[in-house]
Amino acid sequence: MKKQMSYIDSVHRDGRLWNIGMMILLFMFPITVAVMFTASPDWGALVKGLIATAPMYWAVGIVETITFVPMLGAGGSYLSFVTGNISNLKMPCAINALEQNEVSASSEEGEIISTIAIATSSIVTTIIILLGVICIVPLTPVLEAPVLEPAFAQMLPALFGGLGVAFVSKNWKIAIAPVVLMLVLFIFIPALDSSTVGIMVPVSVLFTIAAARILYKRGVV
């Protein structure tokens, strides 16, 4: 008798198919433009542009994938890495949903909750961007109004303030060491800024896991 596939296995099977399909579709965009407008790429400039961009993005992408997959779960990962805006939108959304439902990310319930939160967020984002594109003419002066500029410029601090309180207060023993370390590093090393925060996430995650392990072994947590 054929063994029935578990839910999680079917998520991986479907996720693989979707992501490979999306990869092909994404490449079809420049290829179709090139064919329809009979414009082959400027190969020299393409190689030069790629050398300037790809190695750093690939390195960051590999580290991000390894760091984020265990937090996002299977379904959440397949979706998040296609729809993007992970650390500023999908991840906080998933963390909040897991907290709200009091489920662990590695349980099947956690996998389901995180997938539902991330899928909902992706759908809403896509619709809002679509509406924004349709209404771009009337919206541009409103959204680019100087009075609103600081509000959108400070979105990440506004997001992580609320999320930080909710999560850190429940796990304060684990949080002390990494929060202190990150504050010291970001305050006293001027080179650390918005462009390097992506690289500091895995550093901080590894440090927190190591610190938590020590606390666990000593029976503090």
């Binding site: 760091t67 937090m71 650390s87 991840m91 990440l156 601090p157 992580f160 303030g161 999320l163 930080g164 999560f167 850190v168 796990n171 684990i174 949080a175 990494p178 929060v179 370390l181 990150m182 504050l183 590093l185 970001f186 305050i187 650390l192 800024d193 918005s194 925060v197 500091m200 996430v201 550093v203 901080s204 995650v205 590894l206 440090f207 927190t208 896991i209």
Partner: peptide, 11 residues
């Protein structure tokens, strides 16, 4: 927490 700590530092 590791991820949140990095963003708190960034602030």
């Amino acid at each position: 927490i590791g991820m949140i700590a990095a963003f708190l530092g960034f602030v």
